[in-house]
Computed example of a mutant assay.
Amino acid sequence: MKNFIYVLLLGLFIYSCGSSRDRNLKDSKLGNDTVRIANDSLEYEIIIIEPGFNLFINSVAKPEGYYSQQYLESKNRVLVSEYNSRVRQPQAYDPNLYLQEINYEPRIDYGYEVNYLLYNYFVYFSRHYEQRFSVPTRI
């Protein structure tokens, strides 16, 4: 069975189909805001479908190599844990934002690129949707 990082595969796909503020449906239909990374040997896949994320990663985010992989992994462990906690509390957090848990196993080495994109997705998510996490997501 493959380990999938689902938050952005199914959850954001469904979310991107709904209405939300500042959504540019033209871009999502064209696929301009889809980022996909997969590695069959490690059995993981991450797909980020979020209007504006591609622009963010290419213009606002710190470049790859700026953070160490260890730094990104430690941030992602905390951020994923908090995100998943919010998914399990739909009465306290908007269920339209927190759709599905992220399957992120700290013991698995996902590599730099996945950790980089996941961390930057949290930065984007916290800025775009004005969400605060216990670990600051700054650039």
Rank of each mutant, 00 (worst) to 15 (best):
I5A: 10
D94V: 04
G11D: 05
I108Q: 10
N39H: 14
Q70T: 11
S85Y: 12
Y124L: 00
D40E: 13
L25W: 06
I5D: 03
L72E: 03
G11H: 09
Y6F: 08
Y112S: 00
D40N: 14
L10N: 10
N58I: 01
A92L: 15
A61L: 04
Y110V: 10
G65Y: 15
D94W: 00
V135P: 00
V123Y: 02
V78F: 04
Y98A: 04
I37H: 08
V80W: 07
M1N: 14
N96I: 03
E101Q: 11
L8P: 08
F133E: 05
V114Y: 12
D22W: 11
L10D: 04
S68R: 09
R107E: 11
G31H: 02
Y98N: 05
I139Y: 15
R107S: 12
V135C: 00
F53M: 01
N84R: 11
E82R: 04
E43R: 13
A61R: 11
S19H: 10
L97D: 03
I57G: 02
V87C: 04
F4V: 13
E82M: 02
H128V: 13
R23P: 02
R23T: 15
L30S: 13
E113T: 15
D109F: 13
P106M: 02
E73V: 09
A38T: 12
F4R: 11
T137P: 03
L8S: 10
E45N: 07
E101C: 07
G111L: 01
P51T: 13
N76L: 01
S74A: 10
L10A: 08
P136V: 08
I47N: 05
I14C: 09
E64R: 15
L99W: 08
Y15R: 11
Y119D: 00
I46Y: 11
S59D: 03
G11E: 04
R138G: 06
L12C: 03
G11K: 06
Y98V: 06
R86Y: 04
E105T: 14
G111H: 07
N39M: 03
C17M: 11
N76D: 03
L118Q: 05
Q91G: 08
I102N: 11
N3R: 08
L99F: 12
I37D: 02
R88K: 14
E105F: 09
D109W: 10
I139F: 15
D109I: 04
T34D: 08
I37Y: 08
Y116I: 00
Q70D: 09
E64M: 14
E43K: 15
N54Q: 12
Q70K: 12
R107F: 14
F53T: 00
Y44D: 04
Q89G: 01
R77Y: 04
I49K: 13
S134A: 06
